[in-house]
Amino acid sequence: MHLEVKHLYKQFVTRRGPVVALKDINLHVETGEFVCAVGASGSGKSTMLRIVAGLEQPTAGDVLVDGQPVTGPGADRGMVFQSYTLYPWMTVEENIGFGLKLQGAPIADRYEQSRYYMDVVGLLPFAKALPKELSGGMKQRVAIARALASQPKILLMDEPFGALDVQTRESMQGFLLDLWRNTGTTILTITHDVEEAVFLSQRVYVMSARPGTIRRELSIDLPAERDEALRRSSAFQDYRYQILDLLRQTESTAPELTAPPQSA
């Protein structure tokens, strides 16, 4: 697996004129990596991820997966959104098996696969539950399992834990790291949470807004085994402050907020 984003530009045409959401984005993700893009809201993170997923077309530039240009969404790039995407009429088991169903897999395979991934995310006892019966963290685990069950080359996540409370978020981060280590999945996550980015990633892209650009690429050289104690280590905090400083700099160098036009 090799994801490459080259000279990506995205301009939205709005009623108030064109908005440059992304300017010359270059990044790559290799097999088995866990990479985060971190930036303030409005820095174009979602737009970038949606273009990689094929849900949005770039104004210019290329997205290549194993050298093949991305022209639309496909099962090779699984996606986990922040919320609202589980099928409410399907049980946990049916939700997780749905990707394989769409791809025409026989029912026995679907059963086996969804059992396996329910086990991976610890939801076997909830196989027959409906999404409305699950907590927020459990719903996101189903969404992750559903994306993984389609066996994507890369898992894309848009602020997957953004709607969760702090305790749940931290335990989900630990869960996601375990999952990544045990399944060898390649993951590209975007987040505005600096601590989350440092905790999860091997590499981080720091993004700045107006227009959305990549400010810096950082390797996070922390041990592969990461636990809650690591969050308090000085190495962890150094990375955190380094990124926070970068984000702060980009904010102060961004053009000043302009006053609204005076009405005549």
Binding site: G72, F81, Y84, Y87, G99, L102, A143, S150
Partner: peptide, 28 residues
């Protein structure tokens, strides 16, 4: 939800499947 439809595309669904297996059950 638009994101539910988009999630279906990223699971490998095509438009016909979105229509019959996502939109239709949702609006039943």
């Amino acid at each position: 939800p638009k994101k539910m439809i988009e999630a279906t595309y990223t699971l490998g669904g095509n438009r016909l499947q979105v229509l019959f297996q996502v939109i239709f059950p949702y609006i039943t």
